[in-house]
Write a protein that binds this DNA or RNA. Structure first.
Length: 264
DNA sequence: ATCTATTCCTGGCTGC
DNA sequence: TGCAGCCAGGAATAGA
């Protein structure tokens, strides 16, 4: 399940591979992958990939006045090399180099083309958690009465967090996932902000997390899953901090693990 | 504003 | 060994 660290890993690998190359063709083999795109694939033919960036969980290929955004959702992968027979979208370059393939068994991922000036409207994302200041984050929390976990998963609030890193950050900062955001103390908010940044940086340093099927541009799995402290742990197993039995609840249709003793 | 339910989707797992 | 049924969840959407 690619979240910010997985997407960041892919983006860093994509830069030497595709930056500066000219798109010869973008072949859409599965129209459902492209169903939400404002513009057609013909728009990007012959354009140079000026830069590759990440915004939230989106991979962005900047082409000047146009932009391509790729969202991997649950099982999407980007692969560099020979076109994969399972590819749903294939990017070919004019120098005849290797191709960039979008593969996605569950077909939930999306590719979008839009005018660069429309980006904020098309993506509608909140702050980058590794770039915004702590005070800005605290101010955001203060204004929200909803529960902290769904709020952190809301891409319009902070962009790039998903179930894995939110679960880990709440555990690290000892905050119960059901707490109301506006009820967090200043101190708790700061600890949460620090924990989010630490979890994301650790994820990036370790090449992302491979749980079900995340792999990078070259098919390599990440290593961060070895660092998880509570995510994917079964209910009733021992808390790694206090040995109390971990609890499992559903929140906003997401499995949520926490320690009832040390997360308050 | 905030919440829940539904939809999308299929490999992998469970239980019979 | 086979097969039906369920489950995972990011995000859009609808409705309460």
């Amino acid at each position: 399940m690619p979240e910010l660290p997985e997407v960041e890993t892919i983006v860093r690998e994509m830069r030497p591979a595709v930056q500066g190359r000219v798109l010869r063709e973008m072949a859409v083999l599965d129209s459902s992958a492209f169903s939400l795109s404002p513009l057609a694939p013909e728009q990007v033919k012959g354009l140079e990939v000026l830069s590759v960036r990440r915004r939230g969980k989106y991979i962005l290929m900047d082409l000047g006045s146009f932009c391509i955004a790729i969202h991997l959702r649950m099982t999407g992968q980007l692969r560099w090399g020979e076109p994969d027979p399972r590819s749903r979208v294939i990017f070919r370059f004019s120098d005849g180099s290797q191709t960039l393939s979008f593969v996605d068994v569950r077909r939930l991922g999306k590719v979008l083309i839009f005018n660069t000036e429309d980006m904020s409207k098309v993506l509608s994302l909140g702050q980058e958690p590794l770039e915004c200041g702590c005070d800005q984050f605290l101010e955001g929390l203060r204004q929200r009465r909803g529960r902290i976990k769904p709020l952190l998963m809301n891409q319009g609030f902070v962009a790039g967090l998903g179930n894995i890193y939110v679960t880990e950050a709440l555990f690290a900062s000892r905050i119960k996932p059901t707490r109301r955001a506006s009820d967090l103390t200043q101190r708790e908010g700061r600890q949460l902000f620090q924990a989010i940044q630490n979890c994301l940086k650790m994820g990036i340093q370790n090449g992302g997390s491979s749980f079900r099927n995340y792999v990078d541009l070259y098919g390599n799995p990440g290593r961060t899953q070895k660092k998880w402290r509570v995510y994917a742990k079964p209910a009733g197993s021992a808390c790694p901090r206090c040995t109390q039995k971990l609890r499992f609840v559903m929140m906003a249709q997401r499995g949520t693990v926490y320690c009832p003793k040390c997360q308050r």
